[in-house]
């Protein structure tokens, strides 16, 4: 199987720019500031976690990047412009169509591009085998477990080999064992596809394990509080999860998160 982009991801600081948020504000209904002055430069190959308490605007940031809302002020610029299929999204719920088989669900992004099924059948099969569901093409979502549904959702997000994949707390509703398994598999996928990911989470451990950049956000108003880098090289395995380095990084991230939350403790209580 040939990876989408054969070149390995260069180290942080040597990557080509992909997307830039410049001073993005979002004010709901003219009164509630969900996001204030967010600056973020996303480079090709980044795995960025947006980490923060609820109300910190991390989901708002994701929806802005997805183009589901427009910023009240500021700009979101794709280098080279944005084309259909540049973006894959995984929500907190699997968000599958219950009336369609697994293969038909994964076919959706292509179907909306008007491409016939036969033409992309191989790519769908490849996406499904990448998430370990090669024997479930004809299954209906209700026949799958929560973790398997999430895999279908991930396969759908990456089947078009998008430039950017957005994930909004995709594993929050899953049990610990399934979540660890999917974390490992997600890093495997990243290795194979060399894709860029923005991952929203409220778990310090998840963000450290997965990402090479952690953007810590604070609430009321939602804003970026700090950015950390996780310099542990990929591929990361279970060994990393139990290493002293991992514990140290979690500690640092946790401190940064506490600073972010401490600033507005009264408001957060």
């Amino acid at each position: 199987m040939s990876p989408a982009y054969p070149l390995p991801i260069p180290p942080l600081g040597h990557r080509k720019p992909l997307l830039e948020l410049g001073g993005v504000d979002k004010v709901f209904n003219g009164s509630v500031t969900a996001l204030q002055g967010m600056n973020l430069k996303v480079a090709q190959g980044d795995f960025i976690s947006l980490l923060g308490p609820s109300g910190c605007g991390k989901s708002t940031a994701l929806r802005l990047i997805a183009g589901l809302m427009r910023p009240s002020s500021g700009s979101i610029t794709w280098s080279g412009g944005q084309a259909q299929g540049d973006l894959g999204v995984v929500f907190q719920e699997p968000t599958l169509m219950p009336w369609a088989t697994v293969a038909q669900n994964v076919y959706l992004p292509f179907r909306l591009q008007g491409r016939p099924f036969q033409e992309v059948e191989d790519r769908i099969a490849r996406a499904l085998s990448l998430v370990g569901l090669e024997n479930f093409h004809k299954a209906y979502p209700r026949e799958l477990s929560g973790g398997m549904k999430m895999r279908v959702s991930i396969a759908r997000a990456m089947v078009t080999e998008p430039r950017l994949i957005l994930m909004d707390e995709p594993f929050a509703a899953l049990d610990e064992i399934t979540r660890h398994k999917l974390n490992n598999d997600l890093l495997d996928l990243r290795e194979k596809l060399q894709c860029t990911v923005i991952f929203v989470t409220h778990s310090v451990f998840e963000s450290v394990f997965l990402s090479d950049r952690i953007v810590v956000m604070a609430a009321r108003p939602g804003r970026v509080s700090a950015e950390l880098q996780v310099d542990e090289p990929y591929p990361r395995s279970e060994d990393f999860r139990t290493s002293a380095r991992y514990a140290e990084l979690c500690h640092m991230t946790s401190d940064a998160l506490h600073v972010a939350m401490g600033e507005h403790q009264e408001a957060a209580e």
Binding site: G67, L68, T95, L112
Partner: peptide, 22 residues
């Protein structure tokens, strides 16, 4: 489903596609 509707928007579905497939 609201998330599905968002997904269709992100993938640039036309009004007709949204009606027919969703």
């Amino acid at each position: 489903d609201h998330n599905l509707r968002d997904l269709y928007r992100i993938y640039g579905a036309t009004r007709w596609q949204r009606l027919r497939y969703l």
